[in-house]
């Protein structure tokens, strides 16, 4: 065999080997890819397709292309001359949802940061107990927990009875079926998502930095804002995202505690698939919500990169 022939044979063997490798890799990836395709991409694709169809009379869709769903989000078609008139109903539901979700995020931050700090400063062997207590609510279904919350805040509920017995108020405070109730419910539901990431970043914090802060004439408040908060920022950002996003799309909480009167995006979308029988519009609203969430995440990613390049 000449050198040339040997080289060709070698090249062929390498190519064959590479083909085999590619095949093996494809087979190994297949289960995971199938799963992702089936449970993530496919439903999303169906949603996208549905959003461009025409609603069926009794629910479902008729296969006729239409952009009405997206138009409907912002405009109302006049029944007489088909002209489009701006309709703020859905936009205001979105804005309300964003407001509530932001409020809940802020509330969860105000409650969650001290909680996380408290746990992070406990002796190591005690921290797991506290973390267990934080995650304990997850052991019960959210629906059940929300019903329990309903019992606490209703007119004859725990809070009102205690306040009246204590003589602080004479007639019950109406909390249930208001924005306040939704707000309290959202904070309650998503507080652990705020506590855990903040705890994770505080746990890594070198507390000699806190001492260094005190040593260099910073009082407690200054140490908090100049040393602890900047160092816990990754956890705070993660916690805010983890509370804001599910808060924005919350369904059970506004349904039960808001009494269905005060709609959030989640309820509005659910309604389109139920009573309103407008699946395409429901799909379109869901996609608009998703776009909103992607925008938030994108903004965060950009801010993080800016921060990184400044640090770098």
């Amino acid at each position: 065999m000449s050198d040339r022939e040997a080289q060709t044979a070698l090249a062929a063997a390498i190519a064959q080997n590479r083909r085999n490798e590619r095949l093996t890799r494809a087979w190994l990836l297949a289960p995971a890819l199938t799963l992702i395709l089936a449970i993530s991409i496919l439903p999303l694709a169906i949603t996208v397709v549905y959003s461009f169809l025409t609603p069926g009379t009794y629910g479902g869709v008729t296969w006729e292309f239409s952009t009405d769903s997206y138009v409907q989000f912002l405009f109302q078609r006049d029944i007489f001359d088909d002209s489009l008139v701006f309709n703020s109903a859905y936009v205001s539901i979105f804005l309300r949802s964003i407001g509530l979700a932001l409020g809940a995020t802020l509330g969860a931050l105000i409650l969650g940061f001290p909680t996380a700090y408290f746990i992070a400063t406990k002796p190591r062997e005690q921290r797991n107990i506290w973390l267990f207590l934080i995650t304990l609510p997850f052991w019960t279904n959210l629906l059940i927990r929300t019903y329990a919350m309903l019992l606490i805040i209703r007119d004859e509920g725990l809070i009102n009875i205690m306040l009246m017995k204590a003589g602080i108020i004479s007639s019950p405070l109406t909390i249930l079926y208001t924005d306040t109730a939704v707000f309290i419910g959202l904070i309650y539901s998503f507080l652990p998502f705020m506590v855990l990431p903040i705890y994770a970043s505080l746990e890594k914090l070198d507390f000699s930095l806190v001492e260094a802060g005190y040593d260099l004439y910073a009082n407690r408040l200054k140490v908090l804002f100049h040393v602890i908060v900047p160092l816990a920022k990754p956890g705070i950002v993660a916690g805010c995202i983890l509370v804001f996003i599910p808060g924005l799309g919350a369904y059970i909480t506004p349904e039960l505690l808001g009494g269905g009167k005060k709609l959030m995006i989640g309820n509005m979308i659910a309604m389109q698939f139920g009573a309103s029988r407008n699946w395409p519009f429901g799909s379109a609203a869901a996609l608009i919500l998703m776009a909103l969430v992607i925008l938030v995440l994108l903004a965060n990613a950009l801010a993080a990169r800016k921060g990184a390049s400044r640090n770098g």
């Binding site: 070198d206 930095l209 005190y214 040593d215 260099l216 009082n219 100049h226």
Partner: peptide, 29 residues
């Protein structure tokens, strides 16, 4: 409390603020 004592410390592990520059660290006090 430590922040009201005109005494400063050089820590064993230095305890420098990682989120600040050299100049910001020095100017912190």
């Amino acid at each position: 409390p430590p922040h009201r004592r005109p005494i400063n410390t050089v820590f064993q592990n230095y305890a420098l603020f990682p989120h600040m520059t050299v100049a910001e660290n020095i100017g912190f006090g």
